[in-house]
């Protein structure tokens, strides 16, 4: 899974597979980080009272 695991080989199949994996993980991770941080900022700024979105 990581380049420091001894199974890791720097070949095309590892790079394609893990490229796709880390790309997906990054989007999920960054997306959620953005949502949480923005929600904290919004809450601090007093947004999102009783209204509906």
């Amino acid at each position: 899974m990581f380049p420091f695991s001894f199974e890791w080989i720097w070949d095309m199949s590892h790079m394609v597979f893990h490229g796709g994996l880390w790309y997906a993980l990054s989007i999920i991770g960054l997306g959620m980080t953005y949502c949480i941080l923005k929600s904290v900022v919004d809450t601090v700024q007093g947004k999102g009272g009783d209204g509906h979105h």
């Binding site: 997906a24 989007i27 999920i28 997306g31 953005y34 949502c35 949480i36 923005k38 929600s39 904290v40 919004d42 809450t43 947004k47 999102g48 009272g49 979105h53």
Partner: peptide
């Protein structure tokens, strides 16, 4: 709870990105 309300709103806002990633996976 205001934070959860905002979180729900923000997650809805970028849901297309998650849905696209989900479709890819």
């Amino acid at each position: 709870v205001r934070f959860f309300h905002n979180l729900s709103h923000n997650m809805h806002h970028i849901m297309a990105v998650f849905a696209a990633t989900g479709a890819f996976l």
